[in-house]
């Protein structure tokens, strides 16, 4: 009798384990399907971008080229179009990011001090920019009046200080242990030294997160470029990519002195340029994930 009961229980356990396994498999398959829609398009683009022009058949469907080649990349990387766009993107990204992080962190640190005169008013003025914007035309006229049309600073400065970033950084600074700062103050540490040698080194994970966010947003800059830049040669990589994908005459956009540019299929050129533009993001993405997985961002999203 007792034995029988035990076997029954074992069956029950086995059954439960089996159903648990099926459950896990089902969820796994669903999630894997979703994740593959995020990964497979890139693999497809990557493979096609390495097709040799002799192996390419227009309009036909294949997932594996018969002959491989890097000719599209060679053409793109040597073309004036790419080099100009790369210069613009590098300038906007690497000049913009330090300005962005310094402006945000400085303002956030200032607002994190409770007994600062004018703190309440400044706080409200910062928050208000999140609620109301003047709109596209007033911004455009403002940039024109400042003489920033056709300058990369028009792509850098308007987004260099944002209310949301300031608020998240501020609450981070406020949660730092007070006694460290108090001790430093008693030892005669000035505000500047305190900020640069004590507060910032304590906030490295947070600063890294916002640095990466700034890098990505400047690298992805598109609309402010077509809005404020007038010289074609000053346009950043996102505009370059958009032109290559949409234009019928790719050779003009690529701008390279090589007859090969008319032989390499449009599609291969387009895909290779997408790979080139997205590559830096894919490179820094693992670092980003490391930081936002730490919970800095979760706290931020929660407000």
């Amino acid at each position: 009798m007792a034995q029988k009961l035990e076997t029954k229980q074992n069956y029950g356990k086995l059954g439960m384990r089996a159903s648990e396994n099926i459950y896990q498999c089902l969820i796994g398959v669903l999630l894997a399907l979703l994740a593959s829609t995020m990964i497979l398009p890139f693999l497809y683009v990557l493979v096609i971008s390495f097709t040799d022009s002799t192996a390419y058949v227009s309009g036909s469907f294949y997932l594996w080229p018969k002959k491989w080649s890097t000719e599209a990349y060679v053409l793109i990387l040597r073309g004036r179009g790419f080099l100009d766009a790369l210069r613009a993107s590098l300038f906007i990204t690497f000049v913009g990011t330090p300005i962005n992080v310094c402006a945000n962190a400085g303002l956030a640190y200032m607002l994190s001090k409770d007994d600062l005169i004018g703190r309440g008013v400044i706080n409200k003025l910062v928050m208000f920019t999140m609620l109301f914007g003047a709109g596209m035309i007033p911004n455009f006229i403002n940039i024109r009046n400042l003489g920033l049309i056709n300058s990369w600073f028009a792509n850098i400065l308007p987004g260099a200080c944002g209310a949301w970033t300031v608020m998240v950084m501020k609450s981070f600074f406020q949660e730092l242990p007070r006694d460290i700062e108090e001790a430093a103050e008693i030892d005669g540490c000035g505000t500047m030294r305190m900020f640069f040698q004590i507060v910032l080194p304590l906030s490295l994970a947070m600063l890294a997160t916002f640095t990466l966010f700034a890098l990505v947003s400047y690298w992805n800059c598109y609309f402010s470029a077509i809005m404020y830049l007038t010289d074609t040669s000053k346009m950043p990589l996102q505009v370059y990519l958009q032109k290559i994908v949409l234009s019928t005459d790719i050779s003009e956009v690529v701008d390279v002195q090589d007859d090969l540019v008319n032989k390499v299929p449009q599609e291969v050129m387009r895909m290779a340029s997408l790979v080139v533009v997205v590559f830096p993001i894919l490179c820094i993405y693992p670092f980003m994930q490391k930081y936002f997985a730490k919970g800095v961002m979760v706290g931020a999203v929660k407000g």
Partner: peptide
């Protein structure tokens, strides 16, 4: 310290 952000 807060000046650049406020100015922007």
């Amino acid at each position: 310290l807060g000046l650049p952000g406020m100015a922007i």
